[in-house]
Protein backbone atom coordinates (compact mmCIF):
# COMPACT_ATOMS: atom_id res chain seq x y z
CA UNK A 1 0.00 0.00 0.00
CA UNK A 2 1.07 3.59 -0.65
CA UNK A 3 2.12 5.75 2.26
CA UNK A 4 3.34 9.32 2.44
CA UNK A 5 5.46 10.54 5.32
CA UNK A 6 8.34 12.84 6.17
CA UNK A 7 11.81 11.52 6.96
CA UNK A 8 14.43 13.95 8.22
CA UNK A 9 12.48 16.83 6.69
CA UNK A 10 12.01 15.21 3.28
CA UNK A 11 8.63 14.04 2.05
CA UNK A 12 8.73 10.40 0.97
CA UNK A 13 6.14 8.39 -0.90
CA UNK A 14 6.63 4.65 -0.71
CA UNK A 15 4.79 1.55 -1.70
CA UNK A 16 5.16 -0.64 1.39
CA UNK A 17 4.11 -4.17 2.24
CA UNK A 18 1.46 -4.20 4.93
CA UNK A 19 3.58 -6.39 7.20
CA UNK A 20 6.76 -4.38 6.75
CA UNK A 21 8.08 -2.59 9.83
CA UNK A 22 9.10 1.05 9.97
CA UNK A 23 12.61 -0.26 10.69
CA UNK A 24 12.65 -2.18 7.39
CA UNK A 25 11.49 0.86 5.45
CA UNK A 26 14.16 3.05 7.04
CA UNK A 27 17.02 0.60 6.53
CA UNK A 28 16.13 -1.25 3.32
CA UNK A 29 13.97 1.12 1.28
CA UNK A 30 15.50 4.44 2.34
CA UNK A 31 18.99 2.99 2.91
CA UNK A 32 19.31 4.92 6.19
CA UNK A 33 21.35 2.28 7.98
CA UNK A 34 22.29 4.35 11.03
CA UNK A 35 19.19 2.94 12.71
CA UNK A 36 20.11 -0.55 13.95
CA UNK A 37 18.14 -3.71 14.59
CA UNK A 38 19.09 -5.32 17.89
CA UNK A 39 16.53 -7.55 19.56
CA UNK A 40 13.61 -6.89 17.20
CA UNK A 41 11.15 -6.98 20.11
CA UNK A 42 11.33 -3.53 21.66
CA UNK A 43 13.69 -4.44 24.50
CA UNK A 44 17.02 -2.92 23.44
CA UNK A 45 16.29 0.47 21.85
CA UNK A 46 18.92 0.17 19.07
CA UNK A 47 16.21 1.00 16.50
CA UNK A 48 14.96 4.13 18.30
CA UNK A 49 13.71 6.92 16.03
CA UNK A 50 11.38 9.84 16.65
CA UNK A 51 7.80 9.95 15.39
CA UNK A 52 6.29 13.42 15.71
CA UNK A 53 8.98 14.26 18.26
CA UNK A 54 8.55 11.18 20.46
CA UNK A 55 11.08 8.38 20.88
CA UNK A 56 9.75 5.02 19.70
CA UNK A 57 11.20 1.65 18.74
CA UNK A 58 10.86 1.30 14.97
CA UNK A 59 10.90 -2.52 15.17
CA UNK A 60 7.40 -2.56 16.70
CA UNK A 61 5.75 -0.13 14.32
CA UNK A 62 4.22 -1.31 11.07
CA UNK A 63 5.04 0.79 8.02
CA UNK A 64 1.41 1.66 7.18
CA UNK A 65 1.06 3.16 10.67
CA UNK A 66 3.41 6.07 9.85
CA UNK A 67 1.32 7.39 6.96
CA UNK A 68 1.16 11.17 7.47
CA UNK A 69 3.75 11.19 10.28
CA UNK A 70 7.06 12.91 10.70
CA UNK A 71 10.07 10.66 11.28
CA UNK A 72 13.50 11.69 12.49
CA UNK A 73 16.43 9.26 12.30
CA UNK A 74 20.05 9.61 13.39
CA UNK A 75 20.92 10.81 9.86
CA UNK A 76 18.66 13.83 10.35
CA UNK A 77 20.43 15.28 13.38
CA UNK A 78 23.62 16.88 12.06
CA UNK A 79 22.94 20.05 10.11
CA UNK A 80 25.51 19.34 7.37
CA UNK A 81 29.11 18.34 8.00
CA UNK A 82 29.14 19.47 11.60
CA UNK A 83 28.10 17.12 14.40
CA UNK A 84 25.00 17.79 16.45
CA UNK A 85 25.94 18.80 20.04
CA UNK A 86 24.65 15.43 21.30
CA UNK A 87 26.87 13.56 18.85
CA UNK A 88 29.81 15.78 19.81
CA UNK A 89 29.19 15.12 23.50
CA UNK A 90 29.10 11.34 22.96
CA UNK A 91 32.41 11.48 21.07
CA UNK A 92 34.15 13.82 23.48
CA UNK A 93 33.04 11.98 26.62
CA UNK A 94 33.99 8.57 25.25
CA UNK A 95 30.40 7.31 25.43
CA UNK A 96 30.90 5.15 22.33
CA UNK A 97 32.65 1.78 22.23
CA UNK A 98 31.41 -0.69 19.63
CA UNK A 99 28.87 1.92 18.55
CA UNK A 100 25.94 -0.37 17.75
CA UNK A 101 23.66 1.07 20.43
CA UNK A 102 24.84 4.66 19.94
CA UNK A 103 22.29 5.90 17.35
CA UNK A 104 19.49 4.67 19.60
CA UNK A 105 20.96 6.34 22.68
CA UNK A 106 21.45 9.58 20.77
CA UNK A 107 17.86 9.58 19.49
CA UNK A 108 16.51 8.97 23.02
CA UNK A 109 18.75 11.79 24.26
CA UNK A 110 17.49 14.05 21.48
CA UNK A 111 13.85 13.37 22.42
CA UNK A 112 14.70 14.20 26.03
CA UNK A 113 16.71 17.36 25.46
CA UNK A 114 14.35 18.90 22.90
CA UNK A 115 11.57 18.78 25.49
CA UNK A 116 13.70 19.32 28.61
CA UNK A 117 16.97 21.17 28.22
CA UNK A 118 17.96 20.88 31.88
CA UNK A 119 17.08 17.33 32.96
CA UNK A 120 17.82 15.88 36.38
CA UNK A 121 19.84 12.65 36.57
CA UNK A 122 16.60 10.86 37.32
CA UNK A 123 15.03 12.24 34.15
CA UNK A 124 18.08 11.22 32.13
CA UNK A 125 17.87 7.66 33.47
CA UNK A 126 14.15 7.47 32.68
CA UNK A 127 14.72 8.73 29.13
CA UNK A 128 17.45 6.13 28.52
CA UNK A 129 15.90 3.15 30.31
CA UNK A 130 14.75 1.62 27.03
CA UNK A 131 18.27 1.58 25.55
CA UNK A 132 20.76 -1.16 26.29
CA UNK A 133 24.54 -0.88 25.97
CA UNK A 134 26.70 -3.95 26.44
CA UNK A 135 30.10 -2.15 26.38
CA UNK A 136 30.27 1.10 28.29
CA UNK A 137 28.62 0.44 31.63
CA UNK A 138 26.47 3.56 31.05
CA UNK A 139 28.49 5.98 33.23
CA UNK A 140 30.06 7.73 30.25
CA UNK A 141 26.78 7.79 28.37
CA UNK A 142 25.06 9.59 31.23
CA UNK A 143 28.00 11.96 31.48
CA UNK A 144 27.67 12.65 27.74
CA UNK A 145 23.97 13.43 28.08
CA UNK A 146 24.69 15.92 30.88
CA UNK A 147 27.39 17.51 28.71
CA UNK A 148 25.14 17.59 25.63
CA UNK A 149 22.49 19.40 27.68
CA UNK A 150 25.10 21.93 28.70
CA UNK A 151 26.22 22.43 25.09
CA UNK A 152 22.64 22.87 23.92
CA UNK A 153 21.89 25.35 26.72
CA UNK A 154 24.95 27.37 25.70
CA UNK A 155 23.75 27.42 22.08
CA UNK A 156 20.43 28.97 23.07
Amino acid sequence: MKIRFTVNGRVEEKDVREDERLLDVIRDDLQLTGTKEGCGEGECGACTVLIDGKAVVSCLILAPQVDGKEILTIEGLAPGEELHPIQRAFVEKGAVQCGFCTPGFIMSTYALLTSNIDPSDEEILAALEGNLCRCTGYAKIIEAVRYAAELMRRQK
Binding site: G45, A55, V57, I61, S108, A111, A126, G130
Partner: peptide, 12 residues
Protein backbone atom coordinates in the same frame (compact mmCIF):
# COMPACT_ATOMS: atom_id res chain seq x y z
CA UNK B 1 2.38 3.64 34.68
CA UNK B 2 5.79 5.31 35.06
CA UNK B 3 7.17 1.80 35.73
CA UNK B 4 5.62 0.26 32.59
CA UNK B 5 8.16 -0.70 29.91
CA UNK B 6 10.48 2.11 28.86
CA UNK B 7 10.03 5.62 27.48
CA UNK B 8 9.82 4.23 23.94
CA UNK B 9 7.22 1.65 24.96
CA UNK B 10 5.17 4.15 27.00
CA UNK B 11 5.03 6.48 23.98
CA UNK B 12 3.18 3.77 22.03
Amino acid sequence: LRTLGSTQIRNR
